[in-house]
Write a protein that binds this DNA or RNA. Structure first.
Lengths: 227, 227
DNA sequence: CGGCTTCTTGAGCCATGTCAATCCCGGTGG
DNA sequence: CCACCGGGATTGACATGGCTCAAGAAGCCG
């Protein structure tokens, strides 16, 4: 289960230029960093706070596609299409630094190995996404949520935060959308997790009590689809 | 619904070097091109026949992750991890041409814009996968299968084959695994599609009768998860 | 024609979506 | 400081989609 970090959690810290950027932007809760379909202008590195990326399909409801926390790079999935494939909404007060399209071009020209590194990361990402989402497809609500918390725990750990106690700015219904479940199911399942002393949730603060238990739940394949 | 092509269907035809390769390999049904966890040795371009890529999670059942048809490039998701993240199994007699790791390096060095192009494709891919899988997460069996056939139809069209009549070498249970459904559900749902004259299936040959109807089904969000 | 695998069909049950009521919490105004 | 209000969260009752188990039909190859 090495690949549990979620979508935008690319390990690009090793690209120093990314940290030199001086352009900072501040957003308040519910403000957007960019809108779906807006032309690609650059990448964003989250400094503090968090955001969700929401995509609306042809006449469907908006889906929460990704959750970005400090250290995450946002906008990578806009490089190919050349427009942002979803709207980025601040979940709380948020600061990001901007890496403009032009700057990316310069950097790519100067250091080809940077682009190579980016390729690697993207390739890794394709694989991670596939693996995560395909296994979610086969899991029940319990499995999906367990997976979600294990993944979040791993992500916080990699970022240097506590892997067992953290705050998720996502609402229950965001989590539901992210996992393909209804709010009610999320809520009920969380209640069960707490009864079983797997974790403690108060509002948006979570405390993992039994990570191994959650991992076991996440791996014990839920029932859907045998082959 | 521009992004309906499936995982490995990258539009890399514009990279001419890929077609110059002389190294051909032939495999018979059920033989494998590479095994999961084998070190990355190169990419493969499918010439004829088809294959499925299957990943086994930590102690789970194997999941069908991708289906590759002639013109598809296989192995892109191995670049990042440097090992193949799944086993590639021939579904029928199969010929591929090999693009070795070394050759990729050379090409990348000669033509930097090629690598850039690869980046774009990978980025696009991240987005496509996300979109497809997240929306599958929210759909019922009907929606998933409809989506699947619409996607396949689009893929065959892009490859220059008939978009309404094609053969899928995948078994019902492969399709189920790919979509997160059981064989039985796939079978029953296909039966309903035929009653409603949306398509005709005989064995592994499919004939789309009402593509618009399928698109409508695929888009009319199945019920799971409202937000 | 027999043996294998794949596909289809049926009956029953459980998980989860739906609908609806209530609760909780944070903010706002009196 | 308290009453009110609104959005999110929880909980309950119910309906149903899809998984399970099981049997049979249809291909496929010898």
């Amino acid at each position: 289960m090495s690949c549990l970090h979620l979508p935008l959690g690319l390990p690009l810290d090793d690209i120093p230029e990314l940290h030199d950027t001086e352009t900072f932007t501040l957003l308040r809760k519910d403000e957007t960093l960019f809108e779906q379909c807006a032309p690609f202008t650059g990448l964003f590195l989250v400094r503090s706070g968090s955001l969700k990326q929401v995509s609306t399909m042809n006449g469907g409801d908006p889906l929460v596609m990704a959750y970005a926390m400090p250290g995450d790079l946002v906008g990578l999935d806009a490089i190919g299409p050349d427009v942002y494939p979803g709207t980025a909404v601040a979940l709380e007060t948020l600061t990001v630094s901007v890496l403009s399209r032009e700057r990316i071009g310069e950097l790519g020209a100067q250091a080809p190995e940077l682009r190579q590194q980016l390729c690697r990361n993207l390739s890794q990402e394709v694989h991670n996404e596939r693996l995560m989402l395909r296994s979610l497809l086969h899991r029940t609500a319990v499995g999906r949520l367990a997976y979600f918390f294990v993944a979040m725990s791993a992500r916080f750990r990699r970022r240097g935060y506590s892997p067992i106690q953290f705050r998720l700015a996502l609402s229950r219904s965001d989590i539901g959308s992210y996992l393909g479940l209804t709010v009610e199911t999320v809520s009920r399942t969380l209640a069960r997790f707490q009864q079983q002393e797997l974790l403690k949730a108060s509002g948006r603060d979570f405390h993992i009590l039994d990570l191994d238990g959650l991992i076991r739940l996440a791996e014990s394949s839920g029932r859907r689809g045998r082959g």
